[in-house]
Write a protein that binds this DNA or RNA. Sequence first.
DNA 1: GCGTAAAAACCGTCCAGACGGTATGTTTTG
DNA 2: CAAAACATACCGTCTGGACGGTTTTTACGC
Lengths: 200, 200
Amino acid sequence: MTSKPQRKNNPEAVRARLLECAARLIVDHGLPALTLENVAREAAVSKGGLLHHYAGKNALIDGLFDEVVEWFDSQVEECIEPDETRPARFSRAYLRVIAAIDMTVPEEKRLAVLMLMLSSDPHYCARWNQWVEARLLRHEKTDLTPMARTLRLAADGLWLSDLGGGPDSSPSARREILAFLEELDAAGAVPASDPHEGEQ
Amino acid sequence: MTSKPQRKNNPEAVRARLLECAARLIVDHGLPALTLENVAREAAVSKGGLLHHYAGKNALIDGLFDEVVEWFDSQVEECIEPDETRPARFSRAYLRVIAAIDMTVPEEKRLAVLMLMLSSDPHYCARWNQWVEARLLRHEKTDLTPMARTLRLAADGLWLSDLGGGPDSSPSARREILAFLEELDAAGAVPASDPHEGEQ
DNA sequence: GCGTAAAAACCGTCCAGACGGTATGTTTTG
DNA sequence: CAAAACATACCGTCTGGACGGTTTTTACGC
């Protein structure tokens, strides 16, 4: 059973497995569990094999980071609305993708890894900011409003709660918040323009 | 505070310095920089001296955690409004404290450390959730609305951005967002528990 | 096809350094 | 003097990664 039906070496699959195992290790056992030996064992390769594909631990983590960011980027791109003039277009997609995260799906679980890397390493923090700022620049016509910012900030809060399972991590609470935010967003992007419901 | 004559030894101050240096190390150079040797060197004591005050690395981190949570708690308590019926009373204070964080002040910089610990260690995550849920229970009459949740989530997002200096970490952007959220909060009041589903 | 040689993929071992922690002093304080 | 507050030296472990060897895959001339 250890030998695959196809007699072929598949380095690409090995690389993918290494990344996935690295992510799983981090999510399930915390950052300190990310050692070359652990990753290699989980991925069923030797440490030498791992170091053949990734020049070092940093390269491994970089690969993981790149993969996750790319995945998130594609999700946002997929979720973004066609109307290029609608305010908070990008930020809404950002929020929706994060709000839709299901931690039981490995693919999405990795976003938690990203969050972890962001908060622990200034280097990845900077790279993430780079990504965000690039998107913000691309959508500067629609996503520099306070409401857009708010959507993204709340999304980050939601995202953060994915890591620790706070009071806002249950699917129901999440749905409620998402609905509320969308409503808020749809109702009045600018509170300065008379919110006609001034009821306490 | 009357008795504090010239005294060569000041263990209390040393303990405080140790905690502060630990926090600074983490914020400035990331979690892996938190080593006993680094902390000891920064605090100008020997490793043995450090271990005399804190039984081990865990004890050090625990001390830091406790201190920061206590500080944050006192800040929120101080910022909370007297009107016990005003909606989102607690969450607004929560937001204001976080929005007021000035990373140049060491005392406040430590909040970033808390955030870091929260996102990296499930253990501290749980302890933090415990704190939040206790507060939420205490203010259940005012802070279980979607708007209150939103305020807290956005605050968390803001808080997170303190760590990495994202696009929302500048004082101006921060003020803008805070103002926007307060306005939103004051205007929109609460659609109550408006189960307005209709998602795809 | 075939052989072969190089390159890529992969393995197992060993080592230097870092880190947490202990053990044992030495000085200061009460 | 006893206890607290430090310092110094040292140890065991872990980890990243270097290194050399082995197997598989590919490239190529025939």
